[in-house]
Design a protein around this nucleic acid. Structure first.
Lengths: 134, 134
DNA sequence: GTAAACCTTAGAGGTTACTAGAAGGCAATA
DNA sequence: TATTGCCTTCTAGTAACCTCTAAGGTTTAC
Protein backbone atom coordinates (compact mmCIF):
# COMPACT_ATOMS: atom_id res chain seq x y z
CA UNK A 1 0.00 0.00 0.00
CA UNK A 2 2.87 2.38 0.65
CA UNK A 3 3.84 4.66 3.51
CA UNK A 4 2.28 7.94 4.61
CA UNK A 5 4.27 11.14 4.80
CA UNK A 6 4.27 10.87 8.59
CA UNK A 7 5.79 7.40 8.52
CA UNK A 8 8.47 8.51 6.10
CA UNK A 9 9.10 11.57 8.23
CA UNK A 10 9.77 9.33 11.21
CA UNK A 11 11.91 6.90 9.25
CA UNK A 12 14.01 9.60 7.60
CA UNK A 13 14.18 12.26 10.26
CA UNK A 14 12.96 14.83 7.74
CA UNK A 15 9.84 16.79 8.70
CA UNK A 16 6.71 16.44 6.55
CA UNK A 17 7.28 20.10 5.62
CA UNK A 18 10.73 19.23 4.37
CA UNK A 19 9.55 16.18 2.45
CA UNK A 20 6.91 18.24 0.62
CA UNK A 21 9.45 20.98 0.04
CA UNK A 22 11.92 18.46 -1.39
CA UNK A 23 9.34 17.04 -3.74
CA UNK A 24 8.30 20.52 -4.88
CA UNK A 25 11.94 21.43 -5.47
CA UNK A 26 12.76 18.24 -7.34
CA UNK A 27 15.07 16.96 -4.60
CA UNK A 28 12.69 14.03 -4.47
CA UNK A 29 11.06 12.72 -7.62
CA UNK A 30 7.26 13.04 -7.77
CA UNK A 31 5.80 10.72 -5.15
CA UNK A 32 2.89 8.38 -5.99
CA UNK A 33 -0.55 9.29 -4.63
CA UNK A 34 -3.38 7.18 -3.28
CA UNK A 35 -7.02 7.56 -4.28
CA UNK A 36 -7.40 10.59 -1.99
CA UNK A 37 -4.42 12.41 -3.41
CA UNK A 38 -2.28 11.68 -0.35
CA UNK A 39 1.37 10.85 -0.86
CA UNK A 40 2.07 7.15 -0.88
CA UNK A 41 5.79 6.40 -0.50
CA UNK A 42 7.33 3.07 -1.52
CA UNK A 43 10.53 1.24 -0.67
CA UNK A 44 12.44 2.71 -3.64
CA UNK A 45 11.53 6.15 -2.31
CA UNK A 46 12.96 5.18 1.07
CA UNK A 47 16.19 4.06 -0.56
CA UNK A 48 16.50 7.27 -2.48
CA UNK A 49 15.64 9.41 0.54
CA UNK A 50 18.32 7.60 2.50
CA UNK A 51 20.89 8.45 -0.17
CA UNK A 52 19.64 12.03 -0.36
CA UNK A 53 20.02 12.42 3.41
CA UNK A 54 23.52 11.02 3.16
CA UNK A 55 24.44 13.52 0.46
CA UNK A 56 22.78 16.41 2.27
CA UNK A 57 24.32 15.58 5.65
CA UNK A 58 27.77 15.44 4.10
CA UNK A 59 27.28 18.92 2.72
CA UNK A 60 26.00 18.51 -0.81
CA UNK A 61 23.81 21.52 -1.63
CA UNK A 62 20.15 20.88 -2.41
CA UNK A 63 20.63 22.18 -5.97
CA UNK A 64 23.22 19.50 -6.68
CA UNK A 65 21.13 16.72 -5.16
CA UNK A 66 18.30 17.90 -7.40
CA UNK A 67 20.57 17.50 -10.40
CA UNK A 68 21.50 13.99 -9.29
CA UNK A 69 17.85 13.03 -8.86
CA UNK A 70 16.97 14.47 -12.27
CA UNK A 71 19.66 12.28 -13.84
CA UNK A 72 18.32 9.24 -11.96
CA UNK A 73 14.91 9.83 -13.51
CA UNK A 74 16.45 9.90 -16.99
CA UNK A 75 17.54 6.28 -16.63
CA UNK A 76 20.58 4.09 -17.15
CA UNK A 77 22.19 6.27 -19.79
CA UNK A 78 23.10 8.79 -17.13
CA UNK A 79 24.92 6.30 -14.90
CA UNK A 80 28.43 7.57 -15.80
CA UNK A 81 27.38 11.12 -15.07
CA UNK A 82 25.84 10.17 -11.74
CA UNK A 83 28.91 8.15 -10.85
CA UNK A 84 31.08 11.18 -11.60
CA UNK A 85 28.93 13.37 -9.36
CA UNK A 86 29.25 10.87 -6.51
CA UNK A 87 33.00 10.53 -6.99
CA UNK A 88 33.45 14.28 -6.84
CA UNK A 89 31.34 14.44 -3.73
CA UNK A 90 33.23 11.61 -2.11
CA UNK A 91 36.47 13.53 -2.67
CA UNK A 92 34.85 16.50 -0.97
CA UNK A 93 33.89 14.34 2.01
CA UNK A 94 37.36 12.86 2.32
CA UNK A 95 38.87 16.33 2.14
CA UNK A 96 36.54 17.39 4.93
CA UNK A 97 37.46 14.39 7.06
CA UNK A 98 41.13 15.29 6.83
CA UNK A 99 40.37 18.91 7.57
CA UNK A 100 38.22 18.01 10.57
CA UNK A 101 40.93 15.71 11.90
CA UNK A 102 43.45 18.53 11.74
CA UNK A 103 41.09 20.89 13.52
CA UNK A 104 40.20 18.31 16.11
CA UNK A 105 43.90 18.15 16.94
CA UNK A 106 44.24 21.92 16.94
CA UNK A 107 41.36 22.26 19.36
CA UNK A 108 42.89 19.55 21.52
CA UNK A 109 46.06 21.59 21.81
CA UNK A 110 44.04 24.64 22.73
CA UNK A 111 42.24 22.65 25.41
CA UNK A 112 45.56 21.41 26.80
CA UNK A 113 46.88 24.97 26.76
CA UNK A 114 43.83 26.21 28.65
CA UNK A 115 44.29 23.43 31.21
CA UNK A 116 47.89 24.43 31.78
CA UNK A 117 46.89 28.06 32.25
CA UNK A 118 44.19 27.07 34.70
CA UNK A 119 46.65 25.05 36.80
CA UNK A 120 49.16 27.86 36.70
CA UNK A 121 46.73 30.52 37.94
CA UNK A 122 45.28 28.22 40.60
CA UNK A 123 48.70 27.46 42.04
CA UNK A 124 49.76 31.10 41.83
CA UNK A 125 46.46 32.92 42.37
CA UNK A 126 48.07 36.33 42.81
CA UNK A 127 49.43 36.33 39.27
CA UNK A 128 47.17 37.51 36.47
CA UNK A 129 48.71 35.59 33.60
CA UNK A 130 47.06 35.02 30.26
CA UNK A 131 47.14 37.78 27.74
CA UNK A 132 46.61 35.72 24.62
CA UNK A 133 44.61 32.77 25.81
CA UNK A 134 42.26 32.87 22.83
CA UNK B 1 51.88 49.23 12.60
CA UNK B 2 49.35 46.44 12.09
CA UNK B 3 47.59 44.98 9.08
CA UNK B 4 44.86 46.44 6.89
CA UNK B 5 41.53 44.72 6.46
CA UNK B 6 42.59 43.69 2.96
CA UNK B 7 45.71 41.96 4.21
CA UNK B 8 43.76 40.11 6.86
CA UNK B 9 41.16 39.22 4.30
CA UNK B 10 43.85 37.58 2.18
CA UNK B 11 45.48 35.85 5.14
CA UNK B 12 42.23 34.51 6.54
CA UNK B 13 40.20 33.87 3.43
CA UNK B 14 37.36 35.91 4.91
CA UNK B 15 36.12 38.81 2.81
CA UNK B 16 36.45 42.36 4.16
CA UNK B 17 32.63 42.40 4.32
CA UNK B 18 32.70 39.33 6.51
CA UNK B 19 35.41 40.70 8.77
CA UNK B 20 33.41 43.89 9.34
CA UNK B 21 30.27 41.84 9.86
CA UNK B 22 32.05 39.63 12.39
CA UNK B 23 33.30 42.61 14.32
CA UNK B 24 29.85 44.20 14.31
CA UNK B 25 28.31 40.94 15.54
CA UNK B 26 30.91 40.37 18.24
CA UNK B 27 32.41 37.33 16.53
CA UNK B 28 35.61 39.35 16.51
CA UNK B 29 36.46 41.63 19.39
CA UNK B 30 36.65 45.34 18.55
CA UNK B 31 39.65 45.87 16.31
CA UNK B 32 42.13 48.68 16.94
CA UNK B 33 42.01 51.73 14.63
CA UNK B 34 44.71 53.90 13.14
CA UNK B 35 44.70 57.71 13.11
CA UNK B 36 42.26 57.73 10.16
CA UNK B 37 39.79 55.38 11.79
CA UNK B 38 40.83 52.45 9.62
CA UNK B 39 41.04 49.01 11.16
CA UNK B 40 44.50 48.00 12.22
CA UNK B 41 44.80 44.29 12.93
CA UNK B 42 47.58 42.80 15.05
CA UNK B 43 49.09 39.38 15.47
CA UNK B 44 46.80 38.45 18.36
CA UNK B 45 43.87 39.23 16.07
CA UNK B 46 45.31 36.89 13.48
CA UNK B 47 45.60 34.14 16.07
CA UNK B 48 42.04 34.61 17.18
CA UNK B 49 40.73 34.82 13.62
CA UNK B 50 42.51 31.59 12.85
CA UNK B 51 40.80 29.89 15.78
CA UNK B 52 37.46 31.43 14.81
CA UNK B 53 37.81 30.11 11.25
CA UNK B 54 38.65 26.71 12.65
CA UNK B 55 35.53 26.73 14.82
CA UNK B 56 33.34 28.08 12.04
CA UNK B 57 34.65 25.65 9.42
CA UNK B 58 33.98 22.73 11.73
CA UNK B 59 30.39 23.85 12.06
CA UNK B 60 30.20 25.97 15.20
CA UNK B 61 27.41 28.51 14.77
CA UNK B 62 28.35 32.19 14.79
CA UNK B 63 26.29 32.75 17.95
CA UNK B 64 28.38 30.24 19.86
CA UNK B 65 31.67 31.64 18.57
CA UNK B 66 30.47 35.03 19.71
CA UNK B 67 29.92 33.61 23.18
CA UNK B 68 33.41 32.15 23.19
CA UNK B 69 34.92 35.47 22.13
CA UNK B 70 32.93 37.32 24.78
CA UNK B 71 34.35 34.97 27.43
CA UNK B 72 37.87 35.53 26.07
CA UNK B 73 37.46 39.25 26.57
CA UNK B 74 36.46 38.71 30.19
CA UNK B 75 39.86 37.27 30.99
CA UNK B 76 41.45 34.30 32.73
CA UNK B 77 38.56 33.64 35.07
CA UNK B 78 36.55 32.27 32.18
CA UNK B 79 39.16 29.71 31.14
CA UNK B 80 37.26 26.68 32.49
CA UNK B 81 34.12 27.78 30.71
CA UNK B 82 35.96 28.29 27.45
CA UNK B 83 37.64 24.95 27.80
CA UNK B 84 34.26 23.33 28.31
CA UNK B 85 32.94 24.97 25.14
CA UNK B 86 35.91 23.71 23.17
CA UNK B 87 35.62 20.21 24.58
CA UNK B 88 31.96 20.03 23.62
CA UNK B 89 32.78 21.27 20.17
CA UNK B 90 35.59 18.78 19.77
CA UNK B 91 33.16 15.99 20.57
CA UNK B 92 30.90 17.33 17.86
CA UNK B 93 33.76 17.31 15.37
CA UNK B 94 34.77 13.77 16.25
CA UNK B 95 31.18 12.65 15.90
CA UNK B 96 31.08 14.28 12.47
CA UNK B 97 34.32 12.61 11.40
CA UNK B 98 32.85 9.20 12.22
CA UNK B 99 29.65 10.04 10.43
CA UNK B 100 31.49 11.28 7.36
CA UNK B 101 33.63 8.16 7.28
CA UNK B 102 30.51 6.01 7.26
CA UNK B 103 28.98 8.02 4.47
CA UNK B 104 32.18 8.03 2.48
CA UNK B 105 32.00 4.24 2.54
CA UNK B 106 28.33 4.21 1.63
CA UNK B 107 28.98 6.43 -1.37
CA UNK B 108 31.88 4.22 -2.34
CA UNK B 109 29.53 1.25 -2.46
CA UNK B 110 27.11 3.22 -4.59
CA UNK B 111 29.92 4.14 -6.97
CA UNK B 112 30.96 0.50 -7.24
CA UNK B 113 27.37 -0.48 -7.86
CA UNK B 114 27.04 2.10 -10.62
CA UNK B 115 30.25 0.82 -12.19
CA UNK B 116 28.93 -2.73 -12.22
CA UNK B 117 25.70 -1.57 -13.84
CA UNK B 118 27.61 0.37 -16.46
CA UNK B 119 29.68 -2.68 -17.39
CA UNK B 120 26.60 -4.84 -17.53
CA UNK B 121 24.71 -2.56 -19.91
CA UNK B 122 27.74 -1.99 -22.13
CA UNK B 123 28.32 -5.74 -22.58
CA UNK B 124 24.63 -6.38 -23.17
CA UNK B 125 23.47 -3.16 -24.84
CA UNK B 126 20.05 -4.54 -25.84
CA UNK B 127 19.06 -5.02 -22.21
CA UNK B 128 17.54 -2.08 -20.31
CA UNK B 129 18.52 -3.07 -16.79
CA UNK B 130 18.50 -0.66 -13.86
CA UNK B 131 15.24 0.04 -12.17
CA UNK B 132 16.56 1.10 -8.79
CA UNK B 133 19.96 2.57 -9.58
CA UNK B 134 19.48 5.56 -7.29
C1' DG C 1 45.90 68.34 -8.68
C1' DT C 2 43.36 64.70 -9.87
C1' DA C 3 42.52 59.96 -10.36
C1' DA C 4 43.12 55.39 -8.42
C1' DA C 5 42.98 52.61 -4.66
C1' DC C 6 42.27 52.11 -0.44
C1' DC C 7 39.32 52.77 3.79
C1' DT C 8 34.82 54.05 6.60
C1' DT C 9 29.54 53.61 7.99
C1' DA C 10 24.62 52.37 7.79
C1' DG C 11 21.48 49.82 5.97
C1' DA C 12 19.38 47.10 2.33
C1' DG C 13 19.43 42.82 -0.32
C1' DG C 14 20.51 37.97 -1.32
C1' DT C 15 20.97 32.85 -0.69
C1' DT C 16 19.99 28.58 1.28
C1' DA C 17 17.07 25.70 3.50
C1' DC C 18 13.59 25.20 5.68
C1' DT C 19 9.15 26.18 8.67
C1' DA C 20 4.73 27.69 9.64
C1' DG C 21 -0.04 29.30 8.89
C1' DA C 22 -4.41 29.32 6.63
C1' DA C 23 -8.06 27.03 4.50
C1' DG C 24 -9.94 23.05 3.40
C1' DG C 25 -10.74 17.67 2.25
C1' DC C 26 -11.28 12.78 3.74
C1' DA C 27 -11.94 9.04 7.10
C1' DA C 28 -12.32 6.69 11.34
C1' DT C 29 -14.09 6.80 15.93
C1' DA C 30 -17.22 8.17 20.16
C1' DT D 1 -23.15 13.41 13.41
C1' DA D 2 -19.51 15.75 15.14
C1' DT D 3 -14.88 15.70 16.69
C1' DT D 4 -10.19 14.19 15.97
C1' DG D 5 -6.49 13.58 13.20
C1' DC D 6 -4.40 13.00 9.29
C1' DC D 7 -3.69 14.74 4.69
C1' DT D 8 -3.63 18.46 0.85
C1' DT D 9 -2.08 23.21 -1.48
C1' DC D 10 -0.45 27.84 -1.54
C1' DT D 11 2.01 31.36 0.22
C1' DA D 12 4.39 33.90 3.53
C1' DG D 13 7.82 34.04 7.16
C1' DT D 14 12.19 32.86 9.49
C1' DA D 15 17.12 32.06 10.60
C1' DA D 16 21.76 32.03 9.57
C1' DC D 17 25.28 34.06 7.17
C1' DC D 18 26.81 36.84 4.53
C1' DT D 19 27.22 40.44 0.45
C1' DC D 20 26.53 44.57 -1.61
C1' DT D 21 25.36 49.57 -2.35
C1' DA D 22 25.59 54.33 -1.37
C1' DA D 23 27.88 58.15 0.21
C1' DG D 24 31.84 59.77 1.60
C1' DG D 25 36.96 60.32 3.62
C1' DT D 26 42.23 59.75 3.06
C1' DT D 27 46.55 58.60 0.94
C1' DT D 28 49.57 57.50 -2.90
C1' DA D 29 51.06 57.72 -7.82
C1' DC D 30 51.40 60.27 -12.08
Amino acid sequence: MGYSIKTISQKSGLSPYTLRYYEKEGVLPLVARDENGNRCFHDEDIDLISLICCLKDTGMPIAEIKQFVALSKEGGGTLPERRKLLMEHKQEIDRKIEFFQQFSKKIDHKIAYFSSLENETSSQPQQQAEEEAN
